Simulated scan of single mutants.
Amino acid sequence: MSHAEGVNIKRRRVLIASTAAIGAVGVASVATPFVRSWYPSAKAEAAGAAVTQDISAIEDGMMIVVKYRGKPIFVVKRTDEMVANLEKVKPQLSDPESAESIQPEYAKNETRSREPSILVVEGVCTHLGCAPNYRPEVGAADLGGANWYGGFFCPCHGSLYDLAGRVYKGVPAPTNLPVPEHSIDGPILTVGEA
């Protein structure tokens, strides 16, 4: 009698098929987390995603802060007087034409913005990364008196920026505050998309 005569062929096929199926499930369960580890995390995806903000409630002369990619984004609703004062500070600025600044093409203008009344800049000092304070009051004695038309003051090392985020001469900050890609559609500001 040969050895193969006592073997149940159907049973052998069922055992091989079930072993192969269990093996495939095992490989898939190991491969899935491995492949998913190549995908960016939810935090990383959110860090690069555009941020929207309704800016209709911002009062004239006020500022709000929006977080984008871990940085504060200053959004200022400038008054007509604030916009008019931008011309008055030009002689005091290091880069009044924003030639050395990081900004989208549509922000290469006197107001450094899409709309003159809305300023959108990164709220990080270009010197060492501190957060400047919003100081909109004209004539502040501690910031130059009659030569101060409102803007931003960095308390860490004394850098000054005007209400277009342009840096003053003779301060530690080397460049203007960066203008991030953004768009304005009615009352909705989108930071991260043009």
Rank of each mutant, 00 (worst) to 15 (best):
A4T: 07
A4F: 14
A4P: 00
N8E: 08
K10R: 13
R11G: 04
R11M: 04
S18Q: 10
G23D: 07
A24M: 14
A24F: 10
G26L: 03
G26R: 00
V27T: 12
V27W: 02
A31I: 02
S37E: 06
P40H: 05
E45M: 10
A47V: 01
Q53H: 12
I55M: 14
I55W: 14
S56M: 14
S56R: 15
I58H: 05
V66M: 07
K67A: 12
Y68K: 08
G70F: 09
G70D: 08
P72D: 15
I73M: 11
R78F: 01
T79C: 04
T79W: 04
E87L: 11
V89D: 09
P91M: 02
Q92L: 14
Q92Y: 13
A99W: 00
A99Y: 00
S101M: 11
Q103H: 10
A107R: 02
A107W: 02
A107S: 11
K108F: 03
E110R: 12
E110T: 08
E110W: 06
T111C: 09
T111I: 07
E115F: 15
I118V: 15
G123R: 14
G123Q: 14
V124G: 08
V124S: 12
T126W: 00
C130A: 13
C130L: 08
C130R: 02
P132H: 06
N133P: 00
Y134F: 15
Y134K: 04
R135D: 05
P136E: 10
G145L: 05
A146Y: 05
G150A: 10
G158T: 00
S159I: 04
S159Y: 00
S159M: 02
L163H: 08
L163W: 06
L163V: 04
A164M: 02
A164G: 05
R166H: 11
Y168D: 07
K169H: 06
P174M: 03
N176Y: 07
N176C: 07
L177A: 05
P178N: 09
V179W: 00
P180G: 11
P180N: 08
I184Y: 10
D185T: 10
G186R: 11
I188A: 01
I188G: 01
T190D: 10
